[in-house]
Each structure stands twice: as C-alpha cells, then as structure tokens.
Design a protein around this nucleic acid. Sequence first.
DNA 1: CCTCCACCGGAACGTGAGGAGT
DNA 2: ACTCCTCACGTTCCGGTGGAGG
Length: 415
Amino acid sequence: MEKPLDKLFDKFLQGQDIFKDRTALRATYVPESLPYRDDQMNKIGSILGPALRGAPPSNILCYGKTGTGKTVVARYVLDLLVKKAKESRLTPPLTALINCRIVGTNYRVLRQLCDAINATMPDGSDVPFTGLPTDEIRSIFKKELDSEQNIMVVVLDEVDYLVKRDVSQGNDILYGLTRMNSELDRSRISIIGISNDLTFKEMLDPRVLSTLGEEEVIFAPYNAVELRGILQQRVEIAFNKDAIADEGVINLVGALAAQEHGDARRALDLLRTAGELAERKGHVKVSQEHVRDAQKVIERDTITEAVKTLPMQSKAVLFAVYALADKGQNDIVTGECFNVYSDIAKTLSLDILTQRRVSDLISELDMLGLINTTVISKGRYGRTKKIKLAVSKKQIGTILDDDIRLSKAAKDILR
DNA sequence: CCTCCACCGGAACGTGAGGAGT
DNA sequence: ACTCCTCACGTTCCGGTGGAGG
C-alpha cells in the first residue's frame, strides 16, 4: 500500500531540488561582488578609508529608492573595512547597523549601540529594554566607547522613519548622535544614514543636516538590464543547474521588477517565490507561469499581512471605507467615513475615537498603501480628504470577513 | 474680492502599561 | 511600597486654508 506522502518525499530524496542555496535570494545576503554599484562603493570606501588610520571619517547620507542596494553596499564596504583592518593587524572600527523602522526611539537606538559595543551597566548586567533615563544610557554608551580609542561607524538604515514618525524627536536623536563626537575624548563616531525618501532632507533640522550630510551618495534605480545581470549572478548561486526553464524567466522577473522602479529586492523575492511555487507543485523547472503566479502571491500576502496586523480601531476605519465603497460611493470624505466608523465602533462595542484621531488613522492607512487620500477643497463646502480604496474591494472584503467580529458587524452595517 | 465651510494637521497634555531602582 | 523612567495611544484646543458661491 502506498502512503500518500511517500511520493512527495521521494521527490525530495531524488535530489531534484530546484534550489541549491536559497539564502542567496534573501535581502540579507551579501554576495561576493556587487555589480553596477562600483561608483557608490568607491565613494563610501574612500570616505571610510581614514578609519583604518584611526582618523574619523565624515558622515554620509545615502539616498535611493527601495531595493537599489543601499543597505547591501553599506554592509559590504563595512565588512571589507573590518576585514582589511584585521589583516593588517590594526584595530578594526566598531560597527553597528540599526534599522530605524524597527528601532525608532532615542532610547532604543542608544540601547542598540550599547549592545553593539557590549556596553554594560556599572554592575555588569545588560542594559535593560526600558526603565533608565535616556541620559543615563547615553552616558553608559559614551563611557564604554571612550574607554579605548575607538572609531565607530553607525549605519542608520531607513533614517527617514526616525524623522517621519516624530519630526522633533527624530531630529533630537540625530542631533544627539552627531554632537556626541564633541563629548568624547578619544573615540569618534561617524554615521551613515540611509534613506529611501529623497525629500527627507527637508524635514531635517539645518544643524543636523550640515553635520550628517557632509557627504552624499546617490543610488539610482537599476534598469532592466542591470536587474537581469544581478538576477543572473544570484541564480547561479541559488538554483541548481537547469532549474530555470529558459532565458525568458529571468527576463520576465527583471521586467516586472523594473516596472516597480527597479527594485532588486523585489526581483529577488519574486524569483524565490517562483522557485518555491514550482518546488511545491513538484515541478523540476521554474517557468514564466510560476513567476506570474508568484507576483500575485506576493501582492496578496503583503496586503493580507498588512490588514491582519492592523489594530482593531484601524480595521474599523478601513471597514468604514470599504462599506462606503461597497455602497457605490465614489467620493468618500473624512466626515462620512467618521460617521460610518462610529456606527461600526458602536456595533463592535469599541470606544468611539474622536474625529481628530480617526483622521490620523486614515493617514496611517494611506501610508500603508491600503487606501489613497488626497486633500481637496470643495469651496463653500469645506476642505477635506477624499478617500479611495487602494486595493480591490473583493480582496479587502474577504480579509475583513475572516475577522469574526468584523464579519458579524458587517451584516448589520452593510444595509 | 471676500467669506466661510469642513475639515487638516500641529502642539500640548493625560493615561496607563511595562520596567528599574531603592 | 514607592518613585522614576519611556512610550503608545488618545484627547483637547486651535490656527490654517483652497476655492465655490455670494
């Protein structure tokens, strides 16, 4: 008698795996060479170079859209710098890579920095997640760093989030970091800021900008040809020979990603998902069909994920927009949205938030890309935000229906 | 040209959870 | 037990504003 799983596992045993090393397709993977980014690498390298002789490098700001290789270049150059220093028996610079989207507050940034240099509390215990005054953690960090003559290179990935979340606080954090050099005796810090947002500079305090933006490096999006080159490089590491059906597969992935402003991360994601789809279906080769399916899967997953992880109040607001759109309303404005939201919140026995707050939630949904909003003026009839769903009604509908509380409320609200 | 609507969005403040030190 | 932190999430208050209609 044949067990159903036998066949499946046999396939894996036969070694007809599609992937050789799928980590090569992940965003965190740093390949041995980075094609098309020589200019940027040289520039960053020449700025950081003095660190090898113990001189403090200038601060750098890197700009470029997502998936243009900013982070990977920074990683690559830093790794190489440390390696070179070790080879020549010099003290390697200390490094820290902080993602400001995740580590978004002054305290947490400082804590990460402490972690990176193994700074500890006076009694030797680890620095706590919370509880200390920020000043204190700051001085702990300074003391530890200054205990020897150190050069520290701090990479602040996605710095724009720091400032966007709270302009004055974000500026404080950056100002505090740039000013720290004048408070240190022996050591020096230099900062590499990485931003997706080109307008980010405008939000910066001039004092911060002048020190932080001493040097600037621009990362242009990859074009379709370059994307193909990158894919080619990774395919050889990630996939087994002949696992890709034909040239067209890579061309297609490159073309699709090029449409998305040349996002290489996206391209690699697409390729990996396509490979996984093929693998799961038991196919031996990745075809263009798989790539197309992968694109749908990725899009659906990101939206579903975004909606599911939304706080209840935001879901209620999103649901209000959905309900209005479902009724065939074209011009949804904040006022209406708030009214419908109030009803929903009531049926769900949620607290009813103020319109001011709901307005903020709407802006958040906009930033997440779930809705689109534009501020319009209707003259005599006021000024408001026009709201549109940014994703298909059907999709939002099915996701919201999955939420038991919401789907119950839906029956009451939708007519 | 002026008015005035219906909001926008900044600022300051309050609350309560989560945690540390004493 | 009590004080002192940070921080997410909300509220209150309010000055600001693009443009249809008088």
